[in-house]
């Protein structure tokens, strides 16, 4: 579910980075009031714990060869509270991006929103609203599972929405969305079951951790919970309405020209000269202009229009690029040999 740079356009990447950065700045400012050295170490180690917990895999039934593992955002936000949970998970995502190169640097904003902030807050508040008073009650564990499924699904639904806003992918948004939701429904259920099992284990072994006594938890009043939930609903609804109007490609396809069938008659004709002008204007200034092959010259020309010059330029470009890289590599090798043949002062000292 880590998004890569390539799925995003620069405006979307910039906007999501700004949102994620702002949210993190807000969260850390709130957290600063309650944080001291204690919690700093605690948060750091728990971040490391998330990495380690993701290594503990287990075989799944009905699907031989597959194994599941924990993501941990809901677990952390239930134990630590959503604010500290979000900080921990966001820093895990930053480390995954920087050290393990999982997820792009420009897509970091998206990833922090999708997998960090939203699952932590959504999961926590859903859990809070559904759970029963005591941990002995089955409803509490059902609440954990529902919180995991819903929070993961919301995060997963954001991925195709962000990709569609960027306009990079060709996959229709509905297909992508359905796939993501389907996969994450399974993943979320597994996550929920494991989270509930881990919480049950912790309750047996260290009830003090579960029982709200772990310091540094930020409590929220009931109105705050309801307000956040309603904001959340609005955001989700906005995302869903975007889906409804998102990609009218089926419609466009049916009334406009079809490049694969040259004898296909367009069913709509409009004589107005305003429309082409508006189109041209939009093309000039839109952030994600429609994908056109015909106007491009990278050696790929439109059907039957053969442009030999562009083809040769592209070939020269490719060969030149690889020759340059080969040259750089050789050059570096030669320099390295020369510096290696000199006596190394360190080895003499040793």
């Amino acid at each position: 579910m880590h998004m890569a740079n390539e799925l995003l356009s620069v405006p979307v990447a910039g906007a999501t980075l700004t949102i994620a950065g702002g949210a993190l700045a807000f969260i850390t400012r709130r957290a600063r009031k309650i944080i001291d050295a204690d919690k700093l170490a605690l948060m750091g180690i728990l971040g490391a714990f998330v990495f380690a917990a993701q290594m503990v895999n287990f075989r799944l039934p009905a699907m031989p060869g597959t194994s599941g593992h924990l993501v941990g955002s809901v677990l952390l936000s239930i134990v630590l509270g959503p604010t500290l949970g979000a900080i921990v998970i966001s820093s895990v995502i930053i480390i995954q991006c920087l050290i393990f190169q999982d997820g792009g640097l420009l897509a970091l904003g998206c990833n922090i929103i999708n997998m960090g902030i939203i699952p932590c807050y959504a999961g926590y508040y859903i859990f809070k609203t559904i759970k029963a008073e005591s941990w002995q009650n089955t409803r509490t564990y059902v609440a954990v599972i529902i919180a995991c499924v819903v929070s993961l699904e919301i995060g997963a639904a954001l991925v195709p929405i962000e990709a569609a806003m960027s306009g990079v992918l060709l996959v229709p948004m509905s297909t992508f969305l359905v796939t993501m939701l389907g996969v994450h429904a399974i993943a979320g259920t597994i996550e929920g079951i494991v989270t509930a099992a881990v919480l049950g284990y912790l309750l047996q072994v260290r009830p003090d951790i579960i029982g709200d006594s772990l310091h540094g938890k930020i409590r929220l009043s009931k109105p705050a919970v309801i307000a956040s939930l309603s904001i959340f609903t609005v955001i989700t609804a906005a995302g869903l309405s975007l889906l409804a109007s998102g990609m009218p490609d089926g419609l466009e396809w049916s009334y406009a020209e079809r490049p694969d069938q040259s004898d296909f008659e367009t069913t709509i004709a409009n004589e107005s000269t305003v429309i082409p002008k508006v189109d041209a204007f939009q093309e000039k200034f839109s952030l994600m202009p429609d994908y056109t092959v015909r106007s491009s010259k990278l050696g790929q020309t439109a059907q039957l229009e053969y442009e030999p010059a562009a083809a040769w330029t592209s070939m020269a470009g490719l060969i030149g690029a690889f020759l340059t890289m080969g040259f750089i590599w050789l050059f570096a090798q030669i320099i390295r040999k020369r510096s290696n043949s000199k006596p190394n002062p360190d080895t003499i000292a040793a």
């Binding site: 180690i45 728990l46 490391a48 714990f49 380690a52 917990a53 503990v56 895999n57 287990f58 924990l70 677990l75 494991v194 099992a197 881990v198 049950g200 284990y201 912790l202 072994v205 260290r206 951790i209």
Partner: peptide, 12 residues
């Protein structure tokens, strides 16, 4: 698995 994760959590 959950016992492993849980004890890892406590140790952390």
């Amino acid at each position: 698995a959950s016992a492993m994760i849980g004890s890892l959590f406590i140790r952390s």
